[in-house]
Design a protein around this nucleic acid. Structure first.
Length: 386
DNA sequence: AAAGCGGGGTT
DNA sequence: AACCCAGCTTT
C-alpha cells in the first residue's frame, strides 16, 4: 500500500507536521500504540470471528463497552453461532436484550443473522471461507451495509477489523480524535463535518499497514486516551501531531452538542398479583404500529398494564376504571430518564380477590416467566422488584 | 435534514 | 446535571 499524498515533496514549506502529508506516520503511530494498549475484550478473538463482531457491534451502538461485556457473554451462551441466532424466536432475542435499550438493534441483529444464513449474501462469497462461519457472511463494507442494522460505521468496522478490507470507519471516538488532531470545529452530526471526517478516516486507512489495527486503534484511542472531558495528552501517541493540543483547545473540541429536548410522559401502572395466576402483563405494540403518546418507545416489550398520558399522570380513578380492578389507595412513584423523555411512573397495586372480576386487559403469567420476558428497565423494576 | 430511539458511565 | 457512548432507521 502507499500513502496517497505521495511523498516526494519533502515537507510542506510551512514546516509544520501536516496531517495530509504525514498520514503514514499518524497511521503507524496509532497502529503501534494499539498493538500494545489494546484491552482484552471478549470479541477480540484471534482470528476475529465475524459473528462475534456482528453481535458486539450491534450491542455497542451508542452503548459503552463496560455496559456490553457482560451482556455479550450471556447472549453468546444462548446463541453461540449465527445459525443458532437465526433459528431463534425473536422473543428470546429481545429478552436477551432486556435493559440494553435501543431494542430495534435486537430485531435488526436477528434479521441480519437470518439474512446471512438464508444465503442472501451468497453473491459475495467467493469461496474463500474458513469453514468456521456461515459461508455467506459478507466481507465487504458495501455488502455488509445491506444487512439490517448495519450502517456505514458498522460495515466499515466489520469489513476492516474482521476481514482486513481497507475501508474507513468513523464513530464518536474517531470523530473526536480526528477533530482534535486537525483542530477542527464541528460535530459528526453535521453533514459537512461528517463528510470531512470520513475523508480523513479514509486517508488514514489507505496509509495504514493494517486497516484493522488502525481503525480499532483510533477507536481505542478515543475511548481510553482522547476522552471527551479530560484527554490524557501526556500519554497520547498523536500528541506531537495534534493541533488542538498545540493550541491548548483539547477541551473545546469538539464543542458540546445541542441538548436533545426531553418530553414528559406519565405512566399509570397496574401491578396485579394473584398467588395462583401470577402477575398481569401485556405486550406493547410491535415495530410498525407504534402509535400513542409514547411513540415507538419500548415497541414489542412486555409490561404491567400501563396507561400513558403526555400532559399529566392518570388519576387513581382513571387507572382503576381503565383496568377494571379494585386498586389500592396509594401508588409507588419513581422517575425514569432516557435521552428524549422524562417518564414518571405511578404504580398502583390491584386487589385481586376472590371476586372473579376480569381485568380489562392483560394476561396472567407466573413471576418466573415474567422475569424471562423482554422488559424495559423500569418495567423490570416494577414487575420483579416492587 | 431532523427526529426518534434506552439506559447508564463519567466528570 | 451535563455530556457522551464502537449509530441506525424513519420521517
Amino acid at each position: 500500500m502507499e500513502a496517497r499524498e505521495g511523498g516526494g515533496a519533502g515537507g510542506p514549506a510551512g514546516g509544520a507536521l501536516r496531517l495530509g502529508a504525514s498520514s503514514v506516520k499518524v497511521a503507524a503511530a496509532v497502529e503501534a500504540w494499539f498493538a500494545e494498549a489494546a484491552r482484552p475484550l471478549p470479541w477480540r478473538t484471534s482470528p476475529r470471528d465475524p459473528y462475534l463482531a456482528l453481535v458486539s457491534e450491534a450491542m455497542l451502538q451508542q452503548t459503552q463497552v463496560s455496559r456490553v461485556v457482560g451482556r455479550f457473554a450471556e447472549f453468546l451462551v444462548e446463541f453461540p453461532t449465527i445459525e443458532a441466532l437465526a433459528a431463534a424466536d425473536e422473543s428470546r432475542v429481545l429478552a436477551l436484550w432486556s435493559g440494553l435499550g435501543y431494542y430495534r438493534r435486537a430485531r435488526s441483529l436477528h434479521a441480519a443473522a437470518k439474512a446471512v444464513c438464508a444465503g442472501e449474501m451468497r453473491e459475495t462469497d467467493k469461496g474463500d471461507t474458513d469453514g468456521r462461519t456461515a459461508p455467506a457472511f459478507p466481507r465487504r463494507a458495501d455488502e455488509l451495509g445491506k444487512l439490517p442494522g448495519v450502517g456505514p460505521y458498522t460495515a466499515g468496522s466489520i469489513a476492516s477489523i474482521v476481514f482486513g478490507e481497507r475501508s474507513p470507519l468513523v464513530d464518536g471516538n474517531v470523530a473526536r480524535v480526528l477533530l482534535r488532531v486537525h483542530g477542527r470545529e464541528g460535530h459528526l452530526a453535521d453533514k459537512a463535518t461528517a463528510t470531512w471526517l470520513w475523508e480523513r478516516a479514509d486517508e488514514l486507512v489507505q496509509a495504514a499497514t493494517s486497516p484493522a489495527l488502525l481503525n480499532e486503534g483510533l477507536m481505542e484511542l478515543g475511548a481510553m486516551v482522547c476522552s471527551p472531558a479530560s484527554p490524557k495528552c501526556a500519554s497520547c501517541p498523536l500528541a506531537k501531531a495534534c493541533r488542538a493540543r498545540a493550541e491548548g483547545r483539547q477541551r473545546e473540541i469538539p464543542a458540546p452538542r445541542p441538548r436533545a429536548k426531553q418530553r414528559d410522559l406519565y405512566c399509570g401502572v397496574v401491578l396485579a398479583h394473584d398467588p395462583r395466576r401470577g402477575v398481569l402483563v401485556e405486550q406493547r405494540v410491535g415495530e410498525p404500529g407504534g402509535k400513542g403518546v409514547a411513540g415507538r418507545m419500548w415497541a414489542g416489550m412486555w409490561q404491567a398494564p400501563t396507561l400513558e398520558r403526555a400532559d399529566r399522570a392518570p388519576t387513581r380513578d382513571e387507572v382503576g376504571i381503565w383496568i377494571n380492578l379494585d386498586i389500592e389507595p396509594d401508588a409507588e412513584r419513581f422517575e425514569h430518564g432516557t435521552t428524549h423523555r422524562r417518564v414518571f411512573f405511578e404504580v398502583w397495586r390491584a386487589r385481586v380477590g376472590a371476586g372473579g372480576i376480569k381485568p380489562a386487559r392483560g394476561r396472567w403469567m407466573s413471576r418466573a416467566k415474567v422475569a424471562e420476558l423482554a422488559l424495559s428497565n423500569p418495567q423490570r423494576r416494577i414487575l420483579c422488584e416492587l
